[in-house]
Design a protein around this nucleic acid. Sequence first.
DNA 1: TTTCAAATATGATCGCCGTCATGTTTTTGT
DNA 2: ACAAAAACATGACGGCGATCATATTTGAAA
Lengths: 191, 191
Amino acid sequence: MRVTREKMAENRRRILDAASALFRAKGVEAVSVAEVMKAAGLTHGGFYGHFASKDDLVAKTLAHALVVEAAEGLDLRAYVSAYLSPRHRDNAAGGCPTAGLAAEIRHHTPASRAAIADGFRSQIDRLTEAFPGADGAAKRRGAVGSWAAMIGALILARAVDDPALSDEILQQTQAWLDARIGDTAGSTDAS
Amino acid sequence: MRVTREKMAENRRRILDAASALFRAKGVEAVSVAEVMKAAGLTHGGFYGHFASKDDLVAKTLAHALVVEAAEGLDLRAYVSAYLSPRHRDNAAGGCPTAGLAAEIRHHTPASRAAIADGFRSQIDRLTEAFPGADGAAKRRGAVGSWAAMIGALILARAVDDPALSDEILQQTQAWLDARIGDTAGSTDAS
DNA sequence: TTTCAAATATGATCGCCGTCATGTTTTTGT
DNA sequence: ACAAAAACATGACGGCGATCATATTTGAAA
């Protein structure tokens, strides 16, 4: 049952999208190849026509999910607020792949770790542009530090069962970051 | 082959210690029950005399690993420096259980999530005491925010393959936190 | 000391999952 | 239009791992 080039490319995209959502929602190890294929509307047989192995799928999925759209004039405050919202916490399947997958990737192949490193670099660069600061070094320092806080807070908030504690972690981190971001608010010149 | 009450208690401790190190090093799902028992110097058979299931072991291991020693007069700067050191990054098996396991626990049983929540509360309280600030609310906000940054930075640094990027994440976060911690340095009154 | 059950060892079971083998259909290059 | 193979479906295989069954030893209570 052969299919069009175009259809095949679409199938590949569907597999990557399904894997991306499932991996974020349940973790890589908890998701089977057959489950991914089924979510993509296919059966497990065709999988090895698209990818060499499950590990290969993980690496390709990371590269696929971590593409960061260049954000001119990103509103950092709004970004942080949305990132640390209960809505984002409760929507891991559609949320930030870094927060959902970074911890696991430590145990994966070099290809996956390289893919995630690329995504990290883009993300840091993007945040550095948006971060207020006197010079480039200060901006980058603030970008990395607050990015780490965002990732950490989301991971911690998701780990916990107690909604009150989970909410507090999100809110305190957001309030703390808001104060830091406001440190040199309104800087519009780049350097 | 029965053993002493005392020996049995020691065996249980060995199992928990082995599980704690192995889980942190390789992740919960990548470690088999037999592997844990072997590391504890036993065989897989006796496992279910100590724990009801692997999930139960995970929950008990978290409670065992997350006991936080009360730290009077904690040197926050030194703590952050050690936490974000390459040495700690490269020693997951002996390092912070939260950074090693929190992300995974999201996919585990309520018992495990409750155990980790208890550990979080203790850790936040401990950091709140040590954090400088005008009032209790500011201290707690700073504690949660910087704790999230520490966890996040360690997780991100461990995920990455590129040593330069990994080092930078640790260093930038540490420098950033150092500046925040210094904001109201030398506060010794509590309220 | 004698008995009973506890603690662990050995071995088996059962299901899941990654991967491969093979069959079927149909696009694509000629 | 024809042939070749690409793309996917169905089905099978093999290993691993959680859990259980049973045997064995021996502490512990009487």
